[in-house]
Amino acid sequence: MQDDYLIVAENVSKWFPIRRDLSDIVLRRPIHYVKAVDNVSLKIKRGEIFVLVGESGCGKTTLGKLLLKAYELDAGKITFEGNDISVVKGKKLKEFRRVAQVIFQDPYASLDPRFTAWDVLNEPLHIHNVGSTKEERQEIIFRAMEDVKLIPPEDFLERFPHMLSGGQRQRLAMARTLVLEPKFIVADEPVSMLDLSIRAEILELMFSLKHRRNITYLYITHDLSTARYVGDTIGIMYLGKIVEMGRASDVIENPLHPYTQALLDAVPEPDPSNRFKERHVRITGEIPSPANIPSGCSLHPRCPYAFTLCPVKYPEMKQISNGRLASCYLYEPTVSDVKAD
């Protein structure tokens, strides 16, 4: 049922024009684009954590920003609770801005150094006109601080960001989203700058908020091991496209797309017996520049399967088995018989 989904994105694209210099303009060279997000569709269920995994530059942040209407779409459509977000205006838009929030990767850069914890948490209330009295606001702020375990709140209210540890800063950033009673949070690599010993507490916090406040997350990461811990659904992104989607455990245990398989081949694990063998990663080379994406299936120059059709035509995303989606000709018998030379 459509109602089970909080957010539905259909064939969305965001292409950034590459800056041209004067000679390009004089010579009327065509405009080139970075296809940061290219014809992506996804659905996020209410109360789930959807994990978007991919290498740097593949378009994760851009897709997250599209879902928050931080960028205008170049193509496609996004609905939030059934409403098309590209046309919402006025009061409805303000409401969307309140319930759809973001947490960034860098807890050091995302907080204004001149703001105390109180200021950080009070500002969104002020902007969105939440709470009519100071007491009311204090109650909301204290509740958020307790939710993220900045306790007792009195100890933290007067502190500036530099007086907080990295983990505490990230928790303050989470509290800042909570004061507005959000329904949807884009968490863009929220733990990648934090030390191992404090990562788990942030992930744990996300889980508990998902349950207690029924928050839906888009969790962006390049790390498949954490994706497995936090994710209900995983989407694997390569050069602006989602190439595989499915239940987190299915994707990790039984990857369908050659790119997902290669990513999984490469993930290091804390097991010292690994040092006696070399890792065999099924694809070779490095990710090409997003300004220069190969034709057809963009993985084809690196792919061990590469059929004749792969450089010619992009394989549409198809349901391969129950709840498993992938865009690869490996799963189309008529195509996968014909091998490129």
């Binding site: 010993s197 990562r199 992930l203 744990e204 990790i252 993930v267």
Partner: peptide
């Protein structure tokens, strides 16, 4: 990895997410 002695090493290893095997709860220090 298999028989850490220092409590810090033990706790740190319990914080490492693993790709395979049982999905035990991650610990933080």
């Amino acid at each position: 990895y298999n028989n850490p002695k220092h409590p810090y090493t033990q706790k740190l290893l319990n914080a490492v997410p693993r790709l395979h095997g049982k999905r035990t709860k991650l610990e933080s220090i």
